[in-house]
Amino acid sequence: MKDFLLLFRADYVEYAKRSPEELQSMTKKWMDWIGGIAAQNKLADRGNRLETGGRVIRSGNMITDGPFCEIKESLGGYIVIKTASIDEATEIALGCPVYQIGGSVEVREISLM
């Protein structure tokens, strides 16, 4: 089995404007989806939701605040799953609730050096 990182991107500023009922419904969809992965013993790390603020460091020690909320799509969270192949990881990613808010999932194999 290999480890794959699933990175979730979406317009989380717009997402946060939803009603409390909509947010609760979406949270349940996320928990059900992640619970389904765990039930298959394929969840390696439950990951976390990421805050919108942070810092970006570029070469030359240039440090800026960011990523900025004005960016249409930002990284909002991640999980790590264990699957036999990137195809299987992609199949799991297809069930992610982020698509319901116009988001995307990036699937990346974690390379153990």
Rank of each mutant, 00 (worst) to 15 (best):
21 E>V: 12
21 E>I: 12
23 L>A: 12
24 Q>I: 04
24 Q>R: 06
24 Q>Y: 01
25 S>R: 15
25 S>E: 14
25 S>P: 01
26 M>D: 12
26 M>C: 00
27 T>N: 13
27 T>H: 09
28 K>N: 07
29 K>A: 13
29 K>R: 12
30 W>I: 09
30 W>E: 09
30 W>C: 08
30 W>D: 06
30 W>N: 13
30 W>F: 13
31 M>L: 14
31 M>I: 11
32 D>I: 01
34 I>A: 03
35 G>S: 07
35 G>F: 08
36 G>F: 03
37 I>C: 02
39 A>W: 01
39 A>M: 03
40 Q>T: 09
41 N>R: 12
45 D>S: 08
45 D>I: 04
46 R>C: 03
47 G>L: 14
47 G>A: 13
47 G>T: 04
48 N>E: 12
48 N>Q: 14
49 R>H: 14
49 R>L: 08
49 R>G: 15
49 R>Y: 08
51 E>I: 11
51 E>G: 13
52 T>F: 08
52 T>H: 05
52 T>A: 11
52 T>C: 06
52 T>I: 13
53 G>T: 12
53 G>L: 13
53 G>D: 04
53 G>Q: 09
53 G>A: 15
54 G>W: 02
54 G>F: 06
54 G>T: 08
55 R>C: 01
55 R>G: 10
55 R>K: 05
56 V>A: 09
56 V>Q: 11
57 I>M: 10
57 I>L: 15
58 R>Q: 08
59 S>W: 08
61 N>E: 15
61 N>H: 13
62 M>Q: 15
62 M>R: 14
62 M>L: 14
62 M>I: 15
63 I>Y: 00
64 T>L: 15
66 G>N: 07
68 F>G: 07
70 E>T: 12
71 I>F: 05
71 I>K: 10
71 I>T: 14
72 K>R: 14
73 E>K: 11
73 E>N: 11
74 S>A: 03
74 S>P: 02
74 S>L: 14
76 G>M: 11
76 G>I: 08
77 G>N: 07
78 Y>G: 03
78 Y>I: 09
79 I>N: 04
79 I>D: 03
79 I>G: 09
79 I>R: 02
80 V>N: 02
80 V>I: 15
80 V>M: 06
81 I>S: 04
81 I>R: 09
82 K>M: 05
82 K>T: 15
82 K>I: 10
82 K>G: 04
83 T>E: 09
84 A>D: 03
86 I>Y: 02
87 D>T: 10
87 D>P: 00
87 D>N: 11
88 E>S: 09
88 E>A: 13
89 A>Q: 02
89 A>L: 10
90 T>E: 03
91 E>C: 06
92 I>L: 12
92 I>N: 07
92 I>H: 07
93 A>H: 02
93 A>K: 06
95 G>F: 01
95 G>I: 00
96 C>Y: 05
97 P>F: 01
97 P>E: 07
98 V>I: 15
99 Y>T: 05
99 Y>G: 12
100 Q>A: 11
101 I>W: 04
101 I>T: 05
102 G>D: 04
102 G>W: 08
102 G>L: 06
104 S>Q: 08
104 S>R: 13
